[in-house]
Design a protein around this nucleic acid. Structure first.
Lengths: 212, 212
DNA sequence: TAAAATTAAACAAACGTTTGATTAAAATAA
DNA sequence: TTATTTTAATCAAACGTTTGTTTAATTTTA
């Protein structure tokens, strides 16, 4: 598919759709909601995107195209060891998750729905791409002897993505058990970014290497 | 609230609702779908539960009441050390997640939706209960010197729940990357149960204790 | 017979989508 | 240049369905 270029109105629709789908889910968001908040006529959604479902798919494609991990350049850098490369990757991942929360909420929710929609295949493709990226890094570290053998990469990915998803989706829970209900959103984002980074790096270090 | 006792027809509605909500979400499931698959008249749902939303809440309450962790008896058992207690808890958790997938898919999905519905508060309460259970165990292990200090229990919970959620929601992805697309469901359940158990125990061991 | 359970039918509201008219800019013909 | 045709964008209104819920009549149970 050719890399579409969208006009202003189309982008307004997609931005609003991303936010509302993230907040209320696909079925929970009506095209009239989207049109109203984006300041366009309802008909424009069908006019530009064909249908609500296709809007979702195009939105997903546009977003996921921007999410290709930058692991290719990273893997060739000779100046840092493989653990540090993994650290950079984790920070990259965490950054993306926290700064693109609406998009990832869509992913989390639609992932649960098994059905063979077009979106399900798009999500599958994205996850396979990310798995391949991490795999390269870890196998590289194993070849230099820096990492242990017998590492279950798929399970580590589940932990990486799962932990981040859990933090994104249970923010008010986290605020409550940490007694930080009144912290402003910006500071809170910084906090869970830091928490996730530290925690995941620690996990990966002890699992990948032999040191505690 | 008094522990309701439901008649056969009510239970049929709740069972069907649990399955369909798990598969297609709350907004994605109509009361007519539920009524048809449960073999009852549509009006019976309003008659017995008041509304679709209240059906969801009652369903959630019934399920979550059965999900209280059995940590109380566990913590007093003098014959096993604290790491083994944590292992038992993990297996208990994994068992529940895998055998009650529909219910947990509902939780995962509704957790994403922030709004202050009655359900959101129910989920919050359940998570706080579970956190308290784990906390007891870990603090107990720290007092005996078996576990390290400075353990971020909330983050470990996020990893525990997040990893399981991730595996539950991306089963077809996991089948594909592991080349086990044709494995029957029962065997597959056993496999991810084992994978989760091993992986999570390993993670908790290296984080809680000093051994690798 | 009185109460509870069950039904088909009806309800208004919301849903995604299509329509036909209107506008204004761009392209073509004179 | 003018005049004419074509094109794309925009809109209010209407389309047919589906939504959750209620009603009123009927059957079953106690």
């Amino acid at each position: 598919m050719v890399s579409m270029e969208y006009n202003e109105k189309q982008l307004a629709i997609m931005d609003t759709a991303e936010r509302l789908f993230g907040e209320n889910g696909f079925s929970g968001t009506s095209v009239r909601d989207i049109a109203q908040e984006a300041g366009v006529n309802v008909a424009m959604i069908s006019y530009y995107f064909g249908s609500k479902e296709k809007l979702m798919e195009m939105l997903f494609e546009q977003k996921s195209n921007k999410l290709t991990l930058m692991v290719e350049n990273l893997i060739q850098d000779e100046n840092v060891n493989y653990l540090q490369k993994v650290y950079v990757l984790i920070d990259d991942y965490v950054d993306r998750f926290v700064s693109q929360q609406a998009f990832h909420k869509i992913m989390i929710r639609e992932q649960v729905t098994e059905s063979g929609t077009g979106l399900a295949n798009q999500i599958l493709a994205l996850k396979k791409r990310n798995l391949a990226s991490i795999k390269k890094l870890i196998v590289g570290g194993q070849k230099t002897g820096e990492f242990k053998k017998n590492i279950d990469i798929v399970m580590m990915m589940a932990t990486l993505v799962g932990t981040m998803s859990q933090m994104i989706t249970s923010q008010c829970y986290y605020r409550e058990v940490s007694n930080i209900e009144n912290m402003d959103d910006e500071e809170f984002d910084k906090l869970i970014r830091k928490k996730l980074s530290t925690h995941l790096k620690h996990l990966f270090k002890v699992v990948l290497t032999n040191e505690a």
